[in-house]
């Protein structure tokens, strides 16, 4: 009888082990020329000022990122959920925000005569979109509409895989998959595709692209393309970091507030738990349990 039971138990444990082994085999199997799992390469994990429990945005960096968005990306990518007024969080004065907004034209109306009109944007307006609608955006870009940027840094993250995703919870406290991905994508255009790989016309190979081997966007940034006035290096690597950080801010504007509040809440809860523990010890002191 015992043997039967032991056998059953062993079978159960064996299955468990098979899970692990089989899974690794599955992840490893792929064909270099025609891969089926994307991205082909995992993004490099970068250092971000806003990572970790005490992370804060580097305002200088966000300002540089805004500059890149404005001068390069905004030609194709909208950022509809971000209002100009929130730019004050990047360290701009009210007057600067007003002046920044005034550089954009937005549609408004109808006026008293019933007509739509365009006017200079004010801080309460949101970033206007470069295309009238998604169809127009797709038509101008080889059939693929450039995605809106308001949430892109939270809307993309490459799977970390087992066991990394567990380690991420307490060790890494990793929440920067979005900016890591964008940074990797922007710096990943230069690579040559493996031999035999066919790249569809009008698309560009990028092993970091999350959905396929190539995408409709050509490399948007090159060394020296944008002029920085704070002396930061004008390199692709720097640009990519700055714009990724900026996009993280656009997606999660209250990140600093969240982490600061979190620290206070944690301190309170830990002290509270400690007090409850002491009280519990005293109350139960004369009861064996």
């Amino acid at each position: 009888m015992k043997k039967i039971l032991l056998g059953l138990a062993a079978a159960g444990l064996g299955t468990m082990l098979a899970f692990g082994g089989g899974a690794f085999a599955e992840e490893a199997a792929h064909n270099a020329a025609e891969p089926t799992h994307f991205p082909i390469k995992h993004p490099e994990q970068m250092k971000w000022s806003f990572a970790g429990p005490f992370g804060t945005y580097d305002k200088q960096q966000l300002q540089r990122g805004l500059k890149i968005y404005k001068e390069v990306c905004s030609a194709c990518h909208s950022m509809k959920l971000v209002a100009f007024r929130s730019l004050s969080e990047l360290g701009y004065s009210e007057a600067q925000v007003k002046a920044f907004a005034a550089e954009y034209e937005v549609k408004d109306g109808p006026n008293a005569e019933g007509e739509m009109f365009t006017r200079k944007a004010i801080p309460a307006d949101h970033f206007p979109a470069p295309f009238a609608n998604e169809q127009a955006a797709a038509a101008a870009n080889n059939g693929a509409a450039p995605p809106d940027f308001s949430l892109i840094a939270k809307a993309r993250a490459v799977e970390r895989g087992f066991p990394q995703f567990l380690i991420d919870i307490f060790w890494g406290q990793y929440q920067e998959g979005g900016p890591d991905y964008i940074h990797a994508l922007l710096t990943g255009f230069g690579e040559t595709p493996p031999e035999g790989m066919k790249i569809p016309e009008g698309t560009h190979y990028n092993p970091y692209f999350i959905a396929a081997k190539s995408l409709a966007m050509a490399q948007p940034l090159q060394d020296g393309q944008v002029t920085y006035d704070d002396g930061s290096p004008q390199t692709l690597a720097q640009y990519s970091k700055d714009v990724s950080a900026f996009l993280m801010w656009a997606a999660e504007p209250h990140l600093e507030d969240r982490k600061k509040t979190g620290f206070r809440v944690m301190i309170f809860l830990v002290l509270f738990a400690g007090l409850l523990y002491v009280a519990k010890r005293r109350i139960w002191a004369d009861i064996e349990h």
Partner: peptide, 23 residues
């Protein structure tokens, strides 16, 4: 008191996710 202590530990875990790893 025992439940309250357990709850406070659970809330620490909850708060950890809400404030540091909300997504």
């Amino acid at each position: 008191i025992k439940d309250a202590f357990a709850l406070s530990l659970f809330l620490i875990l909850f708060a950890y996710f809400v404030f540091y790893m909300p997504n």
